[in-house]
Structures are given as C-alpha cells and as structure tokens.
C-alpha cells in the first residue's frame, strides 16, 4: 500500500504497511537517524518527532495516520555543519553523554520553544518531564534549553547563561 508523508518539508511516497510505526519508516526507509527506538511503548521519548508542531512518539504513530501531515525530525532543525539554535546550544553546553536520548530531547524542547519563546526553568522542567535520560545528563539538557532561549532573545551573551 502506498503512503505519502511529508518529512522536514519533503514528500516521500512509500510502499509500506500503513500500520508500521513512523519510527521504523523514518529510520529504515528514509534513513534518518534522529528518532531512536528506546521503548516502543510511548514511555521514554527517544523517538520524539513533531507532528504538525506538536511533540509525538513516533514509535506509536502508525505511518498511515500521518499521511499529509507535517513531520519534523531533528534532521530538520539543522546539520552538524549548520546546526539549528537548540543544536548549537546543546553543543555549547556539551549536553550529551551517550547521547541516545538527545535527539528526542531536542525535539521535545523545540516544541516548547515554538509555543513559548521564553519559558522559565519550571516550565522547561515540566515540559521535558516526558523524556527519560539514563546517563543523568539532565542538568546540561536544562542548561542547553535555557541557553537556546537566551540565544534566541539575544539579550544575553551566551556566556552569561551558565548559572
């Protein structure tokens, strides 16, 4: 069966069982590495992507359900050569240990910043609550999101963000 999905602005027509979770389509058909398999149960957020601007678990999203909707993955935010704002902030803060959770963290944070460009620390923590990190990189992830907020506002030099 053929399904057409729009990922990071590009359309892809795929011959795939519509029940296939989006995660496997992104990884195996479109060869995008950002979304990760962590649990397949909607419990960890490693697979987080944006669907029509909202953060969603790609591991539990049948690809047939997102035909024609806007899907954004971490690859859509920037590349190693031209990183997006959050990616720059994570790089600056060296906010990764194993990094397996990080693409999902960035996508969840991006959804917050899209909706609220100036969240406070409590709002960031509450929003990020869904996603798990086992390496204990939380403090740096929070710093990175705060840094992205500051970078965007441009009112503070990036240096001043470190608490």
């Amino acid at each position: 069966m053929s399904v057409t999905i729009t990922v990071n602005g590009a359309d892809h027509a795929l011959d795939v069982d519509p029940s296939t979770p989006l995660l496997y389509v992104l990884r195996d058909d479109l060869e995008l590495n950002g979304a990760k398999y962590g649990c397949g149960l909607g419990q960890c957020g490693a697979c987080t992507v944006q669907i029509d601007g909202k953060p969603a678990f790609s591991c539990l999203t049948p690809v047939g359900a997102v035909a024609g909707r806007r899907i954004r993955t971490v690859e859509g935010l920037g590349s190693a050569g031209a990183p997006g704002l959050l990616q720059q902030a994570f790089e600056k803060e060296q906010a990764a240990q194993c990094g397996y959770c990080i693409a999902g963290m960035i996508m969840r944070a991006q959804a917050l910043l899209d909706r609220n460009p100036d969240p406070d620390d409590a709002q960031i923590r509450a929003h990020m609550q869904t996603n798990l990190c086992r390496c204990g990189t939380h403090m740096r992830i929070l710093r990175a999101v705060r840094r992205a907020v500051a970078l965007r506002k441009g009112t503070q030099s990036a240096q001043e963000v470190r608490p």
């Binding site: 993955t73 935010l77 190693a80 990094g99 693409a103």
Partner: peptide, 21 residues
C-alpha cells in the same frame, strides 16, 4: 576540547551501531 562525538548525536548523524545500514 568539545567532544568529537557530540555533533553527530545532536543532528541525526550516524552515531550508533543502531544507525548502521
């Protein structure tokens, strides 16, 4: 020194065994 493995991990580069095809 910034860690050499981090940029790929932030941008969906091939960083893990899981990403090998």
């Amino acid at each position: 020194l910034p860690r050499v493995d981090i940029p790929a991990k932030l941008t969906g580069g091939a960083a893990y065994l899981h990403d090998m095809r």
